[in-house]
Amino acid sequence: MEINQVTVSHDGTKRHLNSVTTAIQKGKVTTILGPNGCGKSTLLSVMSRNNRPAEGQARLEHRDLTDYKPKEFAKKFAIVYQQNDIPQDLTVEKLVMFGRMPYSSLLKKRTQEDEEAVIWALACTNLLEKRKQNLAALSGGERQRVWIAMALAQKSEMLCLDEPTTYLDIYYQLELLELIKELNERYGLTIVMVLHDINQAIRYSDHIILMNEGRIVAEGEPRMVITKAVIKEVYGVNAVFHEDEELGLYMIPLNI
């Protein structure tokens, strides 16, 4: 996906994105990072066609996003939002089956291909044993995995996640990020996610887009983007970096 000189303004004066240009690398994990209000989720909303640029263009496979019909686009692009409201009496399996809507029609019955896609998505997210359970019976981390499973059932080439670890405790945050890493490595999925945690972004990303005030400040490999100077500039925080044999590079904030 290519973003070229995209500007988004909600009220005609304040620009939430200001001439943003970037490209999402196929088969990589890209994390959009930055302080609150920097434009992270707005950029993701442009990619998902939920926000149309006032200026510039967003393209997928050399086609403007607006040229795609909804079902056609859904076969290319799936997104998991931070918060999702659904009936709590719905079962895991039924929710995941909604991911097959791009392939359905009023006259078409559920196919063997639909069933296989749902089973595959449940297996990928370790939810097969919970397929008949109601969502209300699941933990927060399990519910987030159900939404990811529904997105996987779409069989899209690109999976986007808007702050997927928000509201989860640290165990489920790491479980979810390990799942995302596995989906990328095993199935070659192109992943784009918005994160707040800088160390998680360093550890789980191939490519980082660092934003501030509606612009891209830096982008590239984590080690090239996350530096003392950049952290001070963007977050106003002094930090030190350490290298661990198991964890790799990680940052410790010191003071403001």
Score class of each variant (00 low, 15 high):
Gln144Ile: 12
Thr42Leu: 04
Tyr235His: 05
Met97His: 12
Leu17Ile: 02
Ala149Asn: 11
Asn199Met: 14
Ile252Val: 15
Asp162Ala: 01
Met97Gly: 08
Glu2Gln: 15
Phe73Met: 06
Pro164Glu: 04
Ile208Leu: 07
Thr91Arg: 09
Asn255Glu: 09
Leu135Lys: 12
Ala78Cys: 07
Ala229Trp: 00
Lys28Trp: 04
Leu249Met: 14
Val217Ala: 02
Pro102Leu: 06
Tyr172Trp: 14
Thr42Cys: 02
Ile191Asp: 03
Leu106Thr: 14
Lys181Val: 09
Gly56Asp: 04
Lys132Gln: 06
Ile191Pro: 07
Asn51Asp: 03
Thr66Gly: 07
Leu43Met: 10
Leu189His: 10
Glu213Asn: 14
Pro102Asp: 03
Lys155Ser: 09
Asn199Lys: 15
Gly12Thr: 03
Leu179Ile: 08
Arg215Pro: 01
Val29Lys: 10
Tyr103Gln: 11
Leu254Gln: 15
Glu185Ile: 11
Glu113Trp: 02
Ala123Leu: 08
Val96Pro: 00
Val118Ile: 14
Gly188Glu: 08
Ile3Phe: 07
Tyr250Val: 11
Lys155Ala: 08
Leu17Gln: 01
Gln25Ile: 09
Glu113Lys: 13
Ile208Gln: 04
Ile170Lys: 11
Gln112His: 11
Val92Gly: 01
Tyr235Ile: 07
Asp67Gly: 07
Asp197Asn: 12
Asn84Trp: 08
Leu254Cys: 14
Ala117Lys: 06
Ile198Val: 13
Lys14Arg: 09
Asp162Cys: 01
Gly34Phe: 00
Cys38Lys: 03
Ile256Pro: 15
Asn36Thr: 12
Thr21Lys: 12
Leu210Tyr: 04
Leu60Lys: 03
Lys26Phe: 03
Leu65Ala: 01
Leu128Ala: 07
Ala123Cys: 05
Leu254Val: 13
Arg131Pro: 01
Thr227Cys: 10
Trp120Ser: 13
Lys232Asn: 09
Asn134Gly: 05
